[in-house]
């Protein structure tokens, strides 16, 4: 995290007190800031010029016009505020990513039951804004990209939600900390040696590893074979009774092990393990993971992969 000046730190602390982090934040007067935009200033300037004109020409209608502009500005304060007030921001889902690349966080923007909110702009500082409108009683979701600068939990900066609707004369905004973080997996780094134990072969992936119930071939029927394993199709084709052979699933599960990478930097070890998780998943091979304090039993599938990566991402993270 870049170093902050004293003023910035003070500002952050103040903001934290005023809008404490929460996963759901409904914007209200405490949380909304409002100031005129540049056009708002131009608008007021014109009102002031008309006022001076009205005074000099002793023209009541020019004065009235000037008062109208001022009064419209005044009304716009309320309407701009109203457009933002009552909006509820909630932390939604999270799309994890590899450290050094991008992840995404979902933000839910919902309106109260009676009031619609038009043209709201959402952004993290420094990234492009997203515009949306929410109708009364409805909810909009948007994914905002987040740069994953380190492994583990990457906390999002405060989201800036801004609205200038209806007249663009004022800008109402709030900076909301949804206590939202994105999981950053280790950056996968290729390594030749598979840090694995178990399986048919400890050497690595060169010899294909059998899955627990992978069909391996046919052999002649031996009395005692399970009826379910008989290949009825070959009998139908008059090739005699044959039995389907599956590779033994019970033993030989592959464990990716932290300890096998002794002598490497911890981050490097994680990166290497990460790469192997990805490659084994790609190859549709079951695998387990054993870290010093935790382990995941060998399995396969998307959920398993996610769980494993999560473990790698959060290893050693408070």
């Amino acid at each position: 995290m870049p170093k902050l000046s004293a003023v910035q730190q003070l500002y952050r602390r103040w903001l934290r007190r005023r809008i404490p982090p929460a996963t759901t934040v409904t914007l209200n007067q405490r949380r909304i800031f409002i100031l005129p935009t540049g056009y708002g200033m131009l608008f007021l300037l014109i009102a002031a010029m008309l006022f001076i004109g009205g005074i000099n020409y002793e023209n009541n209608l020019l004065l009235t016009f000037s008062f109208f502009l001022m009064s419209l500005f005044n009304v716009a304060i309320l309407h701009t505020f109203r457009n933002l007030s009552g909006v509820t921001l909630s932390a939604g889902g999270m799309r994890a990513g590899f450290s050094g690349r991008h992840g995404a966080l979902e933000v839910l923007v919902s309106a109260g039951p009676r009031r619609s909110h038009t043209s709201l702009w959402l952004q993290w500082p420094g990234s492009p804004a997203r515009e949306m409108s929410v109708k009364a009683g409805e909810e909009q979701r948007t994914w905002l990209d987040i740069e994953l600068i380190h492994r583990g939990r990457v906390f999002a900066e405060r989201i800036r939600i801004e609205s200038r609707y209806p007249l663009g004369l004022l800008r109402a905004w709030s900076l909301v900390d949804l206590d939202h973080w994105c999981l950053a997996w280790p950056t996968p780094i290729e390594s030749a040696e598979c840090p694995a134990s178990g399986g048919d072969d400890d050497e690595g992936l060169h010899n294909s590893l059998a899955g627990n119930d992978d069909f391996d071939g046919l052999r002649s029927y031996i009395p005692g074979d399970s009826l379910r394993a008989i290949n009825w199709k070959s009998l139908a084709a008059e090739r005699g009774l044959q039995t389907k052979v599956f590779t033994d699933p019970a033993e030989g599960r592959r464990w990716l092990e932290w300890d096998r990478l002794a002598g490497m930097e911890p981050e490097m070890r994680l990166s290497s393990l990460c790469w192997w998780v990805l490659s084994l998943d790609e190859a549709n091979q079951p695998y387990g993971l054993r870290l010093p304090d935790q382990e995941v039993a060998p399995a396969i599938g998307l959920d398993h992969k996610q769980q494993t990566l999560r473990l790698l991402a959060l290893f050693g993270v408070q």
Binding site: D213, R228, W232, L235, P249
Partner: peptide, 15 residues
């Protein structure tokens, strides 16, 4: 059990 196949639950077609 861990060596159970889908067919063990759903059934099979027997010739």
């Amino acid at each position: 059990t861990s060596d159970m196949l889908p067919a063990d639950i759903l059934g099979v077609s027997i010739f």
